[in-house]
Amino acid sequence: MTGANIPLLAGASSGFGDFPGTDAWEAARVVVGELSVPYLPLLPERGVGASDVGRTAVLLTDFAVEVGPHGHRVAARPGADHKRAAGFLAQDVDALEEVLERDGRSGGAVSVEALGPLSLAVSLELANGHQILSDRGALRDLAASLADGLRSHVAELRRRLRSDVVLRLREPLLEDVLGGAVSTVSGVGTLIALPANAAVELLRPFADIGASGLVVACPLSAPTLAVLRELPGAGVWAAASQLDPEHYDELGWFFEAGRAVGLGLVPEQPQLKPPSVKALLQPALTLVDQLGFPRSTLAAQTHVTCARGFAAKSDAWASRALGLVAKVAAALAEESAG
């Protein structure tokens, strides 16, 4: 996989993360109806197993996980928690497949997400009660298991949805992992920082699991972006609130390298004053203008999403927000043409 796969996301409207409600078919109807690159949503209101940790854990191969007193932990064998999470995933895939086929949208591209191995290793505990991140051997096993599971997941989605699949890997704790800022379970100390070269080694296989593109979402900082640059063909994603001039030059490297750049331009919560498409688009225009790139770069390399997943009970806004995502992506294309 290389930057040559950018056309799948170029100028696209897409999304990720939590979606309100418990109806997988309604969620699929909205994301397929509003977005040029639909995504496989998470519906955490369904309960245990439907969260990002539960969804990602069920993709692991030879690595059973259950829900314990303090969160998710490694188990001896798959149990009721695994079965429940697998059922939710199967339901979500069934719904997306059905709606894509019904609407004649098969054959395009879809986006699927997972927590990355480093952030997942903070959320999962070993039998001794310590996070997997504290055990380098267990961390390597977890990363290999997740890469293997995602390879199978992507292959199944390509077959069933008859679509190209873009992987969105979420590493919200990458900066803390690299900086030695992850608290121990007891909260009285922090785990030893993971060297950048070790992080690259663990993440590199995710650029070669059969997906038609890889975008990594993590906090923007010099250390995290340095890791992302070492992942072959990997794109980057940033919410509008992260588009600080401090990071412009580092983001410019991704444009120069011809990689995908995702922009979370639409707020995930309703605003007192409805935002205009022009106002929502402005951070993207400022970014490329300040970097000295032509505005045509936006349609050639960027895609638009909301800034985060949606809160519970926000059904009306979720549908409207994704409609705004599509309008901002269309306006981005118009600015690029101008």
Score class of each variant (00 low, 15 high):
A10Y: 09
P69W: 02
D18G: 00
V48M: 13
E45N: 11
L42Q: 15
G54I: 10
V65E: 04
R46S: 10
F16W: 09
E66R: 15
F63G: 02
W25Q: 15
G33A: 13
D52A: 15
V31N: 06
V32S: 12
P7Y: 10
L43C: 09
V31S: 12
L8M: 00
G54T: 03
A50N: 04
V37W: 03
R55K: 06
S13M: 01
R55P: 00
G21Q: 02
G17W: 12
V37R: 05
W25F: 15
S13N: 01
R46Y: 12
F16Y: 13
T56E: 09
A12T: 07
I6T: 15
E26P: 00
D18E: 06
A57P: 07
A24W: 05
H70L: 14
P41D: 10
D18Q: 07
P20M: 06
A27K: 10
G21W: 04
V48G: 02
V65F: 02
R46M: 14
V37G: 11
L60Q: 14
V48H: 11
G68N: 05
V65L: 04
H70E: 15
P41L: 12
V48R: 15
V58E: 09
R46L: 13
V67P: 00
G71V: 08
T61D: 12
D62G: 10
R55Q: 15
D52Y: 02
V32K: 03
V37K: 01
G49S: 11
L9S: 06
S51L: 09
G54R: 03
A57H: 03
E26Y: 07
A64P: 15
G49F: 03
A28I: 04
V53F: 04
P7Q: 07
D23N: 13
L40C: 10
V30H: 13
A57E: 07
L35F: 12
R29S: 14
G15N: 04
G33L: 08
L35I: 03
L42F: 14
P41V: 07
V67Q: 11
V31P: 12
E34I: 00
V32H: 06
F16C: 00
P20Y: 09
L59A: 12
V65Q: 05
A27T: 10
F16M: 08
G17H: 08
L42V: 01
A28R: 06
G71I: 05
V53N: 03
S13P: 04
G71F: 11
V53A: 09
A50V: 05
F19P: 00
V31K: 12
L60Y: 13
G47L: 11
